[in-house]
């Protein structure tokens, strides 16, 4: 058995909100609740869910940019919540992050050489100026930019090129893990395709494993081998993407898959009404977090929190009645088909 690249156990992250008044208890946001997940090397892992469900918080914790309230986060076998900042800095060269916004995440006043080399300084690299330049040139080349581009400033690039610069920056320390938070969401489809192909090449060439956060299910389906669906800070379903999106078992995953607009499915009546907008969870809850939006909810769902359990060789779901939802969906789909 190879060692997992990420291993997260019983992770919780709570945020304390400011008191509304002196006499009321401060309220707490449960951003992440009992997260367990394992990312295997060279199996890119997708994280999907609606806005505010905790995706970015999870990414920041994996990167050591935020601390969990409880639980362990092991990256390559080391618990990053328990190591010293100096040790964390040293590990940094092995895992990097790419942010959503290719405009906001690049300093407009720095030229590309400085931007791309930044992680080398951050890990306290000792290379000479010349060596640094060579590394920048190499990183730029591997994302399909020219070495001469290092003299330019971010505004001289298109959106897709800026995202390439951001990826080059993440690559420069030759990491084995890159956490990418919505890396293609701000891009047009033609540019999105270029960036997705690039990530695929880097995976093949350098053996990089990606943790890929996105609200676009088709993108995650294409870019990742495994994925987890998060609802209100909990993983509700997890497994190989081929199973997760072909045969979604959790009612929430089903509504996400059904909500994706498809070319040529005009005037399709969606079998299931998509649930209403999400609130953040500000109280510890008994029962299933999805019960309020779930058309299958029964008495048991309101009192007993469903545990995430493996139902089909690595495909796991947290729902008491997933078998009922599965057959209901099958009959709804035949009804739509006729």
């Amino acid at each position: 058995m190879t060692q997992p690249i990420i291993e997260i156990r019983d992770l919780e992250r709570r945020f304390q909100l400011p008191r509304e008044s002196l006499f009321r208890p401060a309220s707490t946001v449960y951003a992440l609740n009992g997260i367990n997940l394992t990312v295997e090397p060279r199996r890119s892992f997708g994280i999907v869910g609606e806005s505010g469900c905790g995706k970015s918080t999870l990414a920041r914790i994996i990167m050591g940019l935020d601390k969990p309230s409880s639980g362990t986060v092991k990256v390559k076998g080391k618990d990053i919540t328990a190591i010293s900042p100096a040790e964390l800095r040293k590990m940094r060269s092995d895992f990097q992050m790419v942010f959503q916004d290719p405009f906001g995440s690049l300093n407009p006043r720095h030229h590309v050489e400085r931007i791309v080399a930044e992680p080398l300084f951050a890990v306290g690299g000792t290379e000479s100026k010349q060596e640094r330049k060579e590394k920048v040139a190499e990183a730029l080349t591997s994302v399909g930019l020219r070495p001469t581009d290092m003299e330019k400033y971010p505004h001289e690039f298109s959106g897709g090129q800026r995202q390439r610069v951001a990826i080059a920056r993440a690559l420069i320390t030759r990491p084995s893990l890159i956490v990418a938070d919505e890396p293609v969401s701000a891009l047009d489809v033609s540019v999105q395709a270029q960036v997705l192909n690039l990530l695929r090449d880097l995976e093949d060439q350098f053996g990089i494993t990606f943790v890929f956060i996105s609200h676009n299910l088709a993108v995650v389906d294409y870019a990742c081998q495994d994925a987890a669906v998060i609802y209100l800070g909990r993983i509700v379903e997890q497994g190989p993407t081929s199973q997760l999106f072909n045969n979604p078992l959790h009612p929430y995953t089903q509504s996400l898959v059904d909500a994706v607009p498809h070319v040529g499915v005009k005037n399709r009546r969606v079998a299931r009404q998509a649930p209403t907008a999400l609130k953040t969870q500000t109280a510890a809850q008994t029962g299933c977090t999805f019960a309020g939006r779930c058309s299958f909810a029964k008495e048991r769902c309101r009192v007993e929190q469903p545990a995430l359990r493996d139902v089909d060789g690595g495909h796991s779901v947290a729902c008491h009645f997933f078998e009922a939802t599965r057959s209901d969906r099958a009959s709804a789909q035949t009804a739509v088909a006729v």
């Binding site: 609606e50 609200h215 996400l256 909500a259 994706v260 607009p261 969606v270 907008a277």
Partner: peptide, 8 residues
């Protein structure tokens, strides 16, 4: 917007 809200 999110996919589910977009759908609505």
């Amino acid at each position: 917007l999110d996919v589910t809200v977009q759908r609505q």
